[in-house]
Design a binder for these strands. Sequence first.
DNA 1: GAGCACTGC
Length: 768
Amino acid sequence: MGDTGTKRPNSGDSEDSRKKAKMGGARLEDRADSGAGYNPYLAHMNDGNANGDGSSDPFAGFEKRNTTAAQAEKVEDRDTNPFTGRPHSAKYFGILEGRRDLPVHKQRQEFLDKYHSTQILVFVGETGSGKTTQIPQYVVYDELPQLDGKLVACTQPRRVAAMSVASRVADEMDVRLGEEVGYSIRFEDMTSQNTILKYMTDGMLLREAMHDHDMSRYSCIILDEAHERTLATDILMALLKDVARRRPDLKIVIMSATLDAQKFQRYFNDAPLLAVPGRTHPVEIFYTAEPERDYVEAAIRTVLQIHASEPEGDILLFLTGEEEIEDACRKIAAESEEMAREMDSGPLVVYPLYGTLPPHQQQKIFDKAPAPFRKGGKPGRKCIIATNIAETSLTIDGIVYVVDPGFSKQKIYNPRSRVESLLVSPISKASAQQRAGRAGRTKPGKCFRLYTEKAFKKELIEQTYPEVLRSNLANTVLELKKLGVEDLVHFDFMDPPAPETMMRALEELNYLACLDDEGALTTLGSLASEFPLDPALAVMLISSPEFYCSNEMLSITALLSVPQIFMRPANNRKRADEMKAHFSHPDGDHLTLLNAYHAFKGQQNDPMGDEKSWCHQHFLSLRHLNSADNVRSQLKRIMESRGLELVSTPFEDKNYYTNIRRALLAGFFMQVAKKSGSGKSYTTIKDNQVVKLHPSTVLKTDFEWVVYNEFVLTSHQYVRTCTGIKPEWLLEIAPNYYDLETFDAGEVRSALVRAAEKRRRAEAKKRS
DNA sequence: GAGCACTGC
């Protein structure tokens, strides 16, 4: 003890509490001026002259759910803010003018009429219509949530969108973000007692619904970007359809960008529809005459042709993944230099764009296109090579040319093998339209589709399959049970998943003891659903106090919930592998992750340490380690609130690592593989898939049995993040799953029988 | 001897 060995666990929680204090501080200050006795939107009532324009109540004459656009606009035009009673800021009326210029503004009255006529409304607005910012405000002026305390909520599929839209709308309403207008996302609740309009992620609303099945805090719920059909949106739609029956006072608006609105209308019992035009420029579509054999090569050629012969304007090319993108970036950059020399073309800068790119590099795509090489020379342009991230999450102005090879990586789930994998697949017509639309945001544009018109019409499906049809639903089923859904077979999904997928999920949850044999939620299942984790991880964490290592399992769970912390840059792989070897534990990758995390925490605690350069030097991702820390504190709070003990085996104890390896099995006993024959391959237990240990593993092949975190299907079938285990642990920790009666005769069964005998002998010896 | 499309609690 007492030295600074990198493998020493960090038993204190000083970081957690320090960080908490730092995060909470700012928000407390924000709220300080709106303490319990002061209600800012009633301020005008206390002082009749505060408005400066005569009347004491700006909403005098308003009747909830029976207002007009003219009434609302009159209030918006006042000199004082109707919600805070404060005079409007200098910029308010400028912003208001811009809002009145949006396409959706012309239909404000029409929206209100439809809204009044129905409980559920489907609203279709194309990009640039202003629906995400305006519709919730129109609803606020009609629901008057400041009077009855019931909120208006607007959900978004992504955190950044929830934050940035809330911030924009707070500006538009001239209030402070977090007061009347706020947002709520994981790790950050930016709302207060005064909040009347709340933007939130769809997952966050789902979490709230687990404890409030009727969503009783809200008078109106607006689901935005419903066409994206995320898992959370699909579940929310089904829940809301049901809640709407129980709560006639609840209003629901489904907002979508596609023309597939009829499907939403039909699903919501023929709900009325309102459509608002967008504000985009025409985009001319070009197809290839013949199918392309190599779409990457064709894409590069097309980009260079545009650069050589088309007028000024930036280019957006869609490819499928990091490697493809980086490769294409290099090739295009090299070719364009040659073009500049030989044909006197303008400069071309190429930017990659994908999700795992660090934020400061993602920001570069917003840089201006380069200036001509010389005064009066041909204009420069930028070319962005992006994944699907540019189709939904990020919009880039100034794009005039889109190159669309027609592919993207998509998640697929095979319930038979229980494997989720990523596969390069043709996109849908809706995706192709979305991609083309990216060319017409600032002026008329062109889209070059690298497939034939016939292929577009005949081969592409209309819509990308919703996530619910492409995922393992174990987590979803657990959530639904917690949400009080008893009959999953007849649960009203907009697109019902395959029965086999549901069966697999129920089976998995039953093995994990989250559901009993009747399919009812158990105490363990109810506890597991409290954690923002997959069921296996949650069960592992909940069981970990029994293995005297819940502190360590908290860290491992957090590390498994964030992207890979070990970085391996293409130009420095060897060095990165050498640095990773410093943390390597011979018994497995989970332990190696833990070692790296402990070393990181040691570095953070060291007053002389510089975590940034230390991470850089050790090829560890500081960003991902920090987010693991964040996840860890969230999980820790949940553990504490549920009375789950935080314990560790002393590091000096010879069972320190053994306890952790055993604890892994409490959740992952279904993800075990046994070495087959003499070679390097392994076979998964029960479904008998032949797999290899992923090359990133620290394990030398000296373990007969391994537990693995995930199954990945790429050029081979791999199991990734593996730790060595002993078969007798399986019999002890998961006796139901490893009931010898259920195994066919064979290598696995005989090995388990031998383990059982070994275990009996050991116990007999212990007794005598 | 690989590669994490993209989200979310």
